[in-house]
Amino acid sequence: MATFLSAIEATRRQIVSSGNVLLNRWKTPLECRCPNRVRGKVVIITGATSGIGRFTAFDLAKKGAIVYLAGRNREASAAVVREVTQATGNQDVRFLPLDLTDFSSVETFVQEFLRCEEKLDVLVNNAAVFHHPPKQTQHNVEIVFQTNYLGVFLLTSLLLNTLRHTPNSHLVFVSSDAHRVVSLKDVDTFDPREPVHHQNFEDHVKLYGISKLALRIFAQFVAENFPGILVTEANPGNVWTPIYRHAWLSWWDMRKRLLSSLLMRDVREGAQPLIHALNSASLQSGIYLSDTLEVEGKPGYDPVVTRRLLAASVKLTGKHLDGSSKEIYNFI
């Protein structure tokens, strides 16, 4: 019943969000007006070659941050670095390769970053995939779950000590209301080593929701156990970006694709919750920032479920985690 009610609430939010998009055609769109709080800060942002990640990278560079774009497509990332540098005049925009579906790539990324920097002010976990064709990664993990959660878990865990030793550091997770359509039981019973068979669009939404709820549980764990790090979850809402490149591709679904492109937010508006999270001076650690910049309190998850999720995450990431975070090992 709780999951059903959550699904109803998620649907209501989507309808409201679509209504707001239509209203914004005739009024001033959502915009964060916070003073610049990122100038001179070292920031990593994943998934910055397109969508809200790319828009946020431009905003960070324009405000004078030292920006590291993390992505797996070298050519696309290099092109964005050139575009951002030319458009903003900021020469401190760099690219480091990162493939969240490859644990070795995550480990190498962290090593390369730490050769360049001694501190990390902000880590923005933005990269995600949705409606991906069924696939297991080279680690025999379902690709959506690894990209959206497990790779993020490893990246964040390997950088926790650096974040912890950087004064006033900030950890941002890009979330989604899709986490409301699933339950803790769904996360607890999900085995990413088993192939997933998608029958319809709702199956893709459920898988995406599981990955995002797992991310929320991990975010709350970090917020509770690393008080020196400001942890924020930011929900951009329904934004028309390349994350939908695998969805509604048949001729029959083209109407849905066209309608979605019209009713969803553009990347500028979708990036505002993330930009607000990066620049607001009033956010407390562990909060969830909605797509209308409203703040939701800490949810509080069953510690048994959290422990099992982290234990499974440590087991799946294996030797690549290498005991970097004692808090994680102590907790499980």
Rank of each mutant, 00 (worst) to 15 (best):
G89V: 09
G89D: 01
N90P: 03
V93G: 03
R94T: 11
F95P: 03
P97M: 13
D99S: 13
F103L: 14
S105G: 10
V106K: 02
V106N: 06
V106Y: 03
E107I: 10
T108W: 12
F109Y: 08
F113L: 02
F113S: 02
F113M: 01
R115H: 08
E117V: 06
K119G: 04
L120G: 03
L120P: 01
D121W: 02
V124M: 06
A127Q: 04
A128L: 10
F130C: 14
H131C: 13
Q138A: 15
H139I: 10
E142D: 04
I143R: 13
F145Q: 00
T147A: 05
T147F: 03
N148D: 14
N148P: 02
Y149T: 01
Y149R: 03
L150H: 02
V152L: 09
V152W: 00
F153W: 02
L155I: 08
L155Y: 06
S157N: 11
L160R: 01
L160Y: 03
R164E: 15
H165Q: 10
N168M: 08
H170I: 13
L171W: 01
V172Q: 01
V174L: 11
V174E: 05
S176N: 06
H179P: 01
V181N: 09
V181E: 12
L184I: 06
K185S: 04
K185A: 05
T189K: 11
F190I: 05
P192Y: 04
E194I: 08
N200Y: 11
